[in-house]
Amino acid sequence: MNARRAPWLLTMLLVMVSLPILILYTWLFVDSVSVSAPGSIWPKAFTLKNWRFLFETIEGHASIWRVTFNTLVFALCTVTVVIGTSVTAGYALSRLKFPFRAQFLGGVLILHAFPSISLIVAIFLMLRLLGLYDTLAGVILVKASLEIPFGIWVMKGFYDSVPWEIEMAGIQDGASRFQVWRRLILPQVQPAIAALAIFSFIAAWSEFILPLVLAPSSETQLLSVYLAGLLTDDYLSDYGLLKAVGLFYILPVMVFYLFTQDKLMNIYSGATKG
């Protein structure tokens, strides 16, 4: 009896807790395709006018497609840099002996604990010095380097759980250290790579402060900055439009998340099948 009722109770509880979020999302969707009187919650009529930003450029703002493209490039490049660095650095920290290894690990952890906002002035100055200010490459570098410490630690943890006998067996079988890593070890940590890629993609997609400060102009603008621009535009108090853009912004992440959430769970469980 209890065993039957328990999942029901649990489901009810979960629904209750997540209800506000669900309502918010529903409201967001409904509002983006309807007209409502000021101050009223209930929609009066259906409209697609709020989605006009897809076909025309809002005055004083960049083109949505340009911005979307920028955001995609930004997210994908960040993922590439984060994965490339974490996958190799994590292996080195897990398996190779080199001087100051422990200090390096500690340093990486401290870096991860640093709130990025506290570095923003220094980063701004550095990018200016390097001539990377207001370029996508600049923000990608900054975002990736802030994500890398986390990535390195996750990857190191996964590498640590791969038994070293597998590596020794590979060496005995005649493979070079690189072949062992590429053909025997990487496949074992593949779930971690997938999870880390999704994680950093989402993190990059939703990044706001860095692009706002470091790449504000319309050629390099990202979706989050574009949305904030609309929000603070004094000549534009069209909340329907804002909601439509907001929905447009979160939609890819939600779809992406829906399909990959099982892989994302891996990052917290650290599972290798064997």
Binding site: P163, E165, I166, M168, A169, G170, Q172, G174, L184, P187, Q188, Q190, T272, K273, G274
Partner: peptide, 14 residues
């Protein structure tokens, strides 16, 4: 060219 059988077998799980 040495064949080793490890205590844990160390097979390649994938």
């Amino acid at each position: 060219n040495v064949g080793v059988v490890f205590q844990s077998y160390a097979l390649y799980p994938h």
